[in-house]
Amino acid sequence: MTVAPGELVLEDASRAFSVRADRGRTLKELIIGRERAGGPAPVQALDGVSLHVRPGETVGMVGRNGAGKSSTLRVLAGIVPLDAGSVRTGGQVVTLLELGAGFGRDFTGRENVFLNGALHGLGRAQIEARLDDILAFSELGDFVDAPVATYSSGMYLRLAFAIAAHLDADILLIDEVLAVGDESFQRKCEERIARQIAAGATLVLVSHDAALVERSCARTVVLDGGRVAFDGPTAQAMPFYHRLMGTPDPQPVTP
């Protein structure tokens, strides 16, 4: 079954992670054929999650720490495979999971635009066509030709977001990164995302910022213990989320 660009389907998706400080094994263990016993049991990060997002939808994903939000995003991004179930995404998936995850610290901002574009599968010509817009959006000024090692975290964010926002995403996966920017840049990001959505892009946003989810997302999925606890319009999901978290539903502030 194929999916349309911007569409994303999770079917009964399950994924467990073993909790170990040292993640690799050693050959000795393999040869002796014995795994070290003990330690905590594997954590079921996704436990039969089904989700169907249509092109152009805006979906917030909320839940307590460890509820499976980030894991779900990494599964959707195709970074982590599933133990069971299936995931399908249509079109160009652009992920913003961590500030400047793909940055070369000794590369200048401009060089990192090329590196990051390439990481998303773009060629030189495609990146050059977007370069001016990206640099302008980032508001970095002369810093575009300084190594990103000299950047503040806000500058990192601006560059990372500027790149992600200009890759013609069909699906945008964003994990809690917008919080670093100042208010005016946050607004600019939200506007840019809104325009991409208007043009048909799909947004999946993981955030603990309830207000941001309410502003940006028409639909919200509440995850709890790796399962979908609620999936529906944000207006109904948020009260459910606040009850789940045991926090009082914030009263709307009258302007």
Binding site: R74, A77, I79, T95, L97, A101, G102, L119, H120, G121
Partner: peptide
């Protein structure tokens, strides 16, 4: 590792 954990390529 940072790149592998956060990007698909």
């Amino acid at each position: 590792g940072a790149l592998i954990r956060k990007a698909r390529f």
